[in-house]
Design a protein around this nucleic acid. Structure first.
Length: 496
RNA sequence: GAGCUGGUAGCUCAGUCGGUAGAGCAACAGACUUUUAAUCUGUGGGUCGUGGGUUCGAUUCCCACCCGGCUCACCA
């Protein structure tokens, strides 16, 4: 008790103080309260598949489990615990008789949230509950803080996000979603590697933030004394790798966009971008479909998937519609009809001053068409002015070979036949799209990138998929904060 | 950025038409060798988000601020 303050730096309340005192008592038993190596333990999920026969019939199945105490019922000389690991929870029985004197002293000091290792016999209690009767108890780690309530768990969103480690333990959906995200990422890598794609890593610091239309985060390198930007896309470096002959490359990486936060947007998010030499945007459509379907197959649950109160039917083949046709259908005029487009824009209260025709067209598209796109639907052939990195149709320079995949109004994937003509690329970089603030234009001159193209980039298809949104759609999660383990939150301060 | 809404014990919540607060679980002490959110008896625990104002008195009313949630606007 003399050096109690060493373990109780943050004792603000009774509960934490008592836990610190228990930690000392565990030390006094000659046990390290922070545990040690505990090999060869079995996962709870696996133990629960073993045959469980009543303890009266002397079961012989020996098991060894490590986990966290999430429930504790003390019945005098026998304690029932629920031990949790990420595969499930299992009932554990500690009896004074079987456990020995030291073990019993330790058992009486256990708290909810502590981590223990157990070794014992797996069987069934009189009430039929699969249970491990503990013969050997190992202490693996103290929780100095009380854990959430055993029945209601955690319900406050802010509390869950700021204590994600607890959320994973006490909100099963959070754990399940996190595992599904892992499955999706693994499946994507397997799928692409099977098709001879190389996974590569490109810089996060960019001298010129290119490849997308977004406001960047700005940072500083001291030794070089230069301003740098966190990347807003992966595109320009991956294309350099095509010049370098890598043919099929992909990167799954974090990109950063200095914009608002809402249910569909986190300032840092995970993008998959891939480039395939000698392909085009049609190859990307097939690949997108195959990639997402393989994820669905791996997750299980079939092609008809819930989305809130609605459903998405992923059964292939997915619809493919032309941008111009959808525009005509939902806006009611041809997108080439300049006067009619201006009229429609006025009708929908879209400010028109100084905007290029194609910018107006797209604003109308977003206003009038997107919410109809329940999808999955590939919207193909965009107005060229909107796509400075995309190859134009051979016979129609007004149209870019690009598609976006929409599902329930969300843009999930974006793909091009990549522009590999350096002169046209330089031209589109030079030409500022009017009507858009500079930071919203994709057209930022990157001379080094142009130089790379001048050395000859093969014709190629390129694809970008927002991984967070894909996970949302496949796991029926309405908020991006629930598919990202640690979404950005304002730091907690002591008020102002 | 705008509108609406919330912040009370470790967790989940109730409440105070202004008189400094309650419950369940968790904790502590005790009973209990087969419980299932165990039960029973007793006990402790709160700067009611922060700051200011009004008031004899504020957790409650007013103002500002901090941190969330939802809706909208912008971006994937």
């Amino acid at each position: 008790m003399t050096n109690q303050s060493n373990d109780g730096l943050n004792d603000q309340n009774e509960a934490t103080k008592i836990r610190s005192e228990k930690l000392q008592k565990i030390r006094q038993l000659g046990i390290d309260p922070w545990g040690m190596r505990f090999d060869n333990h079995q996962k709870v999920e696996k133990v629960l598949t073993l045959p469980s026969i009543p303890f009266d019939d002397n079961p012989t199945e020996n098991v060894r489990i490590a986990g966290r105490i999430v429930l504790r019922r003390v019945m005098g000389k026998v304690h029932f615990l629920h031990l949790w690991d990420h595969t499930g929870r299992i009932q554990v029985m500690i009896g004074q008789k079987q456990i020995g004197e030291l073990g019993w002293k330790l058992a009486e000091l256990l708290d909810l949230g502590d981590q223990i290792g157990i070794e014992g016999v797996f069987g069934k209690t009189k009430t039929g509950e699969p249970t491990v009767k503990v013969l050997q108890l190992t202490f693996l780690g103290k929780s100095l803080e009380p854990h959430p309530e055993k029945f209601h768990g955690m319900s406050d969103m802010e509390y869950r996000l700021r204590h994600r480690y607890l959320d994973l333990i006490y909100t099963p959906e959070t754990l399940e979603r996190s595992k599904q995200r892992i499955v999706i990422l693994r499946t994507i890598r397997e799928y692409l590697e099977k098709q001879d794609f190389f996974e590569v890593e490109t810089p996060i610091f960019h001298a010129i933030p290119g490849g997308a239309a977004a406001r960047p985060f700005i940072t500083q390198h001291n030794a070089l004394d230069i301003q740098l930007y966190l990347r807003i896309a992966l595109e320009l470096h991956l294309k350099r790798l095509l010049v370098g002959g890598l043919e099929r490359v992909f990167e799954i990486g974090r990109v950063f966009r200095n914009e608002g936060i809402d249910q569909k947007h986190n300032p840092e998010f995970t993008m998959l971008e891939l480039y395939q030499a000698y392909g085009d945007y049609r190859s990307m459509m097939d690949l997108t479909e195959g990639l997402i379907l393989s994820c669905i197959d791996k997750l299980g649950g079939g092609y008809l998937r819930p989305w809130g109160s609605k459903q998405v039917d992923f059964t292939p083949p997915w619809k493919r519609e032309k941008y111009a046709d959808l525009f005509l259908q939902y806006v009611g005029v041809a997108l080439t009809d300049q006067n009619a487009v201006v009229q429609q824009a006025q009708k929908h209260h879209i400010p028109i001053e100084n905007k290029e025709h194609d910018v107006l067209v797209h604003e109308l598209f977003e206003r009038c068409v997107e919410h109809h796109l329940e999808g999955p639907i590939f919207v193909c052939d965009y107005p060229a002015a909107l796509c400075p990195l995309t190859k134009r149709k051979w016979d129609n320079p007004a149209i870019a070979e690009r598609f976006e995949l929409y599902i329930h109004g969300m843009e999930l994937a974006n793909a091009y036949t990549e522009l590999n003509d350096p002169d046209t690329q330089a031209e589109t970089f030079r030409r500022q799209l009017t009507g858009l603030p500079e930071e919203e234009s994709m057209a930022k001159m990157d001379q080094e990138f142009i130089t790379a193209l001048r050395h000859g980039m093969p014709p190629a298809g390129g694809l970008g998929i927002g991984i967070d949104r894909l996970v949302m759609l496949l796991t029926n999660t309405q908020s991006i904060r629930d598919v990202i383990l640690f979404p950005l939150l304002r730091p907690e301060q002591n008020n102002h």
